[in-house]
Every structure is written in C-alpha cells, then in structure tokens.
Amino acid sequence: MADVTVRKVRPRHLSIMQIRLPLPGFVSILHRVSGAGLFLCLPVLIALFGASLGSPAEYASLQNALAFSVLGLPLLKLLLLGLLWAYLHHFCAGIRFLLLDMHVGIELPQARASAVAVLGVSLGLTVILGVLSW
C-alpha cells in the first residue's frame, strides 16, 4: 500500500471579515470589548470621580473638562456616554451569563432572545441614563 495521505484542503474560517457571528456570539465579543474599553479608561474615570469629590479647584477643573468641546462636540461627555454604554452592556450581558451558568435559558430560542434583550436593554438604558445625566 502506498503511504500516501490525501489531505483535503479544508477552509480555515479564521478571517474576521468572513466570520458571521450569531447574535449570542456578538453579545459575547462585545462583553470582552466593553470590558477592555472600561479597563483602559479606568484612570480617566477614577480621576473624574476624584475631581467630583475633591477641592473646589479640582471640581472647577472637572466642570471645564466636561465643557471642553471641539467643533461643537463635547469630547469628554461623548467618551463618558460611550463608557456608560460599555458599562451597561457589560452589566446586562454579565447577568445573562450568570443565568446561563445556572442553566437558565440555555435552549437556543431563549438564548437568542436573551441576546437580543441584552443588546436592546443596554442601548435603551444608555439613552435614558444619558439623557438624564447629560
């Protein structure tokens, strides 16, 4: 017998541009992205928290930073709005994962529905809390 191995050329679906994620996968990667973004912005968030509770001069500098805008865009406020979404998405997706750990909603239809709910609720809460705190 000839010692030949016939290797089929298998597609390697590792190209990010070709992968079509299902909705739960989308929620999952956004959980990681939002967590990474929040981690990277921690020094900004702690500094703002400190200034909000600091001396009058520090509080004034916080007000100035919030009012700072380029071409009419309040950059810090927009960053905070983005981080608010990141926090809320991480919060909602995290609750979904905790429930999945407890075997709640692990059937595919429920899991898809909860993934949609996570995306919708976190966006909705971002709008509500964003408007209230703007």
């Binding site: 921690l42 020094p43 702690i46 928290f49 400190g50 509770l53 600091g54």
Partner: peptide
C-alpha cells in the same frame, strides 16, 4: 495603584 488612589479619594472626604 488604582486601589490606593480610590482609598485616598474616599477617605479624604
């Protein structure tokens, strides 16, 4: 470092 920073923010109040 952040942990120390947060402690300082809260307990100087």
């Amino acid at each position: 470092g952040y942990a120390g920073w947060v402690a300082q923010i809260l307990w100087r109040l």
